[in-house]
Design a protein around this nucleic acid. Sequence first.
RNA 1: GGCGCCGUAGCCAAGCGGUAAGGCAACGGAUUGCAAAUCCGUCACCCCCGGUUCGAAUCCGGGCGGCGCCUCCA
Length: 521
Amino acid sequence: MPLRVYSTLSRQKEEFQTVEPGKVRMYLCGPTVYKPAHIGHMVGPVIFDTIKRYLTYAGYDVTFVVNITDVDDKLIVKAQEKGTTVKALAEQMTADYFDNLKLMGVDSVDQFPYATDHIADMLAMIARLIEKGHAYPLEGDVYFAVDSDADYGKLSNRSIAQMMAGTRVEANDRKRNPADFALWKSSKPGEPAWDSPWGPGRPGWHIECSAMSARILGDSIDIHGGGLDLMFPHHENELAQSESCSGKPFARYWLHNGLMQSGRQSGKVGGQHSRQGDAPASEEDQIAGKLAGSAGAESVKSAVFAHHPPEVVRFFLLSTHYRSPIDFSLENIAATGKSLEGFHRLFEEYERISGKSAYALPAPTKRTETTSLAAVESLAPEVAAELASLRDRFTEAMDDDFNTGGAVATLFDMRRVINGLVNQFTAAGAKPDAAQQAALTASVKLLMELAHTLGVFRTPPAKAAGQQDDLVEGLMQLILDIRADARKSKNWPVADKIRDALKTLQVVVEDRPDGVRWSRG
RNA sequence: GGCGCCGUAGCCAAGCGGUAAGGCAACGGAUUGCAAAUCCGUCACCCCCGGUUCGAAUCCGGGCGGCGCCUCCA
């Protein structure tokens, strides 16, 4: 099955063919760093990080660029409000952004170009656009002339006439066409400014992406990504600038991710389906408020990760198709977290059996080097066949416009199959022999191979605070020792009382054939 | 007003013309002293009405309902 992707430009799925065979050039519109990153800012990076991982797995050599827009009107306003400089604010917010990306496991980005490092490229592009008759200077500003671009509006499917009909485009008699947008803005005193042939000023909003994309990836790239909200005007204008300037197609595939919606914005939660008596509602509303980006915006780190591990949030984002909107709610994320527990239990079990960390298994990162199931084949051919078939289902789903939701389902199936194998090998408390361990290793490695293309299960779940406490360890040993004695003498009331009491303290005790086990929830 | 998306079980969600994946929850069973974990099993008239087709959740038309963009929000 060839890889197929949906492009906003053609409004249909197309077979994926790169400009240069085997290579993928991918550009994702990054943040304007004027406020702390909120959970919505993580959607695009996680999705395109996953896309890069999968494309790499599929055999492509991918270059992935995410820009940092560190000069902008919002930045100027915010810096003034806070009594700091644009530069200082941008640096601070960029650090916060990187911080969050790291937590989310987004580590496949090759370059983060800064707008302010590419002013010269932008000036050159603007000059070229003027030269070619696509832009005109006006009192220190430079505007792009939408009338000069015959197919302006093709990305967001709108015509200039339509936009004029709407009341939203305010009349500006200075511009030739009200829809013309700024490539260069003259600066007022005190604002960040760079010299230009048209006087001191700063770049318009869209030109930085066009210039940096061309500089780093070339005139024609393969994938241009971003949130659905950027389709117009940002991407439409980028497209118009870039193609008018180079005369070549700008991006082969435009991928737009759906936006995250807070519980309050979503009719599903706020409307008639609203559940009554939801205890965490107030807290959730708070975070939802932060999502909306209004007052008191706080970094994702404190707003969301305080409640859920980043990996759970990442998995949550990948549980649905990237183009669909996703409802943010603590309840939904908690459900995701619950569904992941079984995986980590399996990995712990594997470690107990084999003495090896599942997370540290050297899982292949290329489809062509996929995990051999020979060790499984020799012991349980039907299981090997099932695992192989699940692997195929996984790649088929991913090949179909990166259907992570469908792909995730096969991971759950795989978990069930491997658990069955574990049960088979450990029946009656038996210790799996070398051949059985090899079969388990191959199975778990395959699961990891696929999971890693989604960027999940790369590290063990973070231990809860206090988990490593020596005192707790000692006390637990004592308590369970006492309980073991009680069980030995069949004193069930005492044994059960201890277990029940521990449960109220979030400590789960399991009596297994091979001994007692405890864990903190 | 213009452009576009969506409506599948209590909840999340896949499905892209051939007779409904997966997860959470729930309920049976195996297992267990009882539990937990795990495994097996049960659980969907695919918003409504027409149409196309041998056959539609899937295509077309019309409703109803929800959402987004057209305001320098990812």
